[in-house]
Design a protein around this nucleic acid. Structure first.
Lengths: 310, 310
DNA sequence: GAGCCGCACAACCAGAAGTTGTAAGTTGCC
DNA sequence: GGCAACTTACAACTTCTGGTTGTGCGGCTC
């Protein structure tokens, strides 16, 4: 499947003949003829009835046509996605199952005309340096030290995500409706895969200090499936997750999500962008996110102190 | 954008390095290196950080990756769509705004796993010969002469589509709820674009004969927009359309669709297929369509007499 | 420091894909 | 019927893409 051959095919259909297609493609008629011939050979079907009149699509050609068009559209979008200056807005969401991805998806649903490219970088620090060198335009992340941002990078708080815990069916808390975080001190709090130095690690460090609990992030991270297996089988292990974190577990696992209360710890999401990247598309995203900001819960704990309105 | 270069790019990401990608692609490491280099040159971005360790995606590479994958998926689907013996089921629906397309879309909604290619051929006769030579697998059309089908082609009636009329806001019937077809004899019944010799022409000929009305199909067909313009402005002109024919008219046109009653003329849709093409996918479509068959209306007129159940 | 690993560059070669020139076919007009 | 006008296809030639093998360079590992 040669892209140029496909382009020739679509062009012949749209222009109505080899000659005219050649003209619009800027090549000779013979070149178009060769492209179509090679395409037909590679697919092993005839695409046009060549009458001496004009070329007419065969049934195979008719079937191929829409597929060919989507192929070309995909190719064009692929090229556009990395074209400096003209590319879609690039936003880092830290992970595709996290609340940030959810927030951005909300935006996409209500603004389908804004071209987006969703990226996931390794950590918030990487996002900031990517913002600095211009390889991304914006990021949704937890900002541990707002005051330490490099010049030119701006930020706004957009969402406080309540924290929940996940326990197995035989855990003592399995049938509770909610629990207080201080009551968790006696349980084993396990959050594998926290990479030291990331904003994620900083958040859990703050949480552990604030409530005088111990969060175990040791041991190798074998992935979510393994974590769920352990939780499901254990009477003691508890893990944290954001209220809007999407996880899918196998049907056999009867896991429970529990709200935390009095206070509810929240994971604060900020929207970051570079002054230079600011423009109409970016401000539409930012406006949407700030407008969507949920009203603050009655009793919350957050690692960052925010002055003024949420 | 060379497809093979994109394939190499995705392969390098999935395999984790140039070397391994070369192995799975069956080419030399240097060839992969060249492909990536040419892709980077054509896009004018760097896709991989070449550390001495393993190749690592840049932000541009991360962004391109999903686009590259959809591009390859589109290419594969395009090839599959014409691959003899393995291609998706091809069904002719006569026109994408007609009831047949609607019926097939219903099927697609409830059976998204069945790969379909929807085709529109010029007329029912073309569909039959396309069925005969195997270039399509099935068709939804009005079958004027079921007894004249070539051997091997089978058919089943699936849907009676009530006929409606379309009038402008100043037409005397504009505020009627429904009308009897016999009462239309005094109006100008205009259906432009009926190609003689098609099943469409045969249907209207039957209709005209049965109710002793005159249907005007003369004059050049300037398309639906022109037809709607004429209807909207006229106090006399009336046109027919199927109850499930989708038309979109500009907001300024206050057109009215009216049901026909006592009897309601129906446009009977049949599902046609070739014995040789019968298989699990085709029978799922056929079963769905026959199951969806609507209960017969109380008083209908149809050009074909059907014995037994609907 | 020696060896290993991973990617890039150089030289070479085959063939893909462009060009021009020309043939073969049908339509339309005289 | 014969010729002009038009279409697409084929032939010969040229260019250059994209593959190969051989080799170099830089950073890990031991």
């Amino acid at each position: 499947m040669n892209t140029e051959a496909v382009r020739a095919f679509v062009s012949v259909v749209e222009e109505g003949g080899f000659q005219d297609a050649a003209l619009t493609l800027g090549v000779s008629q013979q070149a178009v003829s060769k492209r179509i011939a090679s395409l037909e050979k590679s697919l092993d079907v005839v695409l046009f009835h060549r009458g001496p009149r004009r070329a007419e699509l065969t049934v195979d050609g008719r079937v191929l046509l829409p597929h060919a068009k989507t192929l070309l559209a995909a190719a064009d979008r692929a090229v556009q996605s990395v074209r400096p200056g003209f590319r879609p807005l690039r936003v880092d969401v830290r992970g595709r199952r996290l609340a940030a991805a959810h927030l951005l998806y909300d935006f996409h649903e209500s603004h389908p005309d804004v071209q987006l490219d969703v990226v996931t970088l390794s950590d918030g620090g990487a996002a900031v340096s990517a913002l600095e060198n211009g390889s991304i335009d914006a990021a949704l992340t937890y900002l541990h030290q707002p005051e330490a941002l490099p010049p030119g990078i701006r930020h706004v708080h957009v969402y406080d995500e309540p924290l929940e815990i996940l326990v197995g069916p035989r855990h003592p808390l399995a049938h509770a409706k909610s629990t207080r975080i201080a009551d968790l001190a006696t349980h084993r709090l396990w959050v594998p895969g926290i990479v030291p130095g990331t904003e994620w690690a900083a958040y859990y460090a703050s949480l552990a200090t604030a409530f005088d609990i111990e969060i175990d992030s040791t041991g190798p991270d074998f992935g979510v499936e393994h974590l769920l297996d352990v939780i499901a089988d254990s009477r003691t292990v508890v893990t944290f997750l954001g209220a809007r974190t999407r996880i899918v577990w196998p049907a056999r696992h009867e896991l429970r999500r529990l709200r935390l209360a009095e206070p509810t710890p929240v994971y604060p999401w900020s929207f970051l962008w570079h002054d230079k990247a600011d423009g109409p598309a970016l401000s539409r995203v930012r406006d949407h996110l700030t407008r969507m900001a949920h009203p603050p819960l009655s009793s919350v704990w957050s690692p960052v102190r925010r002055d003024g309105v949420a």
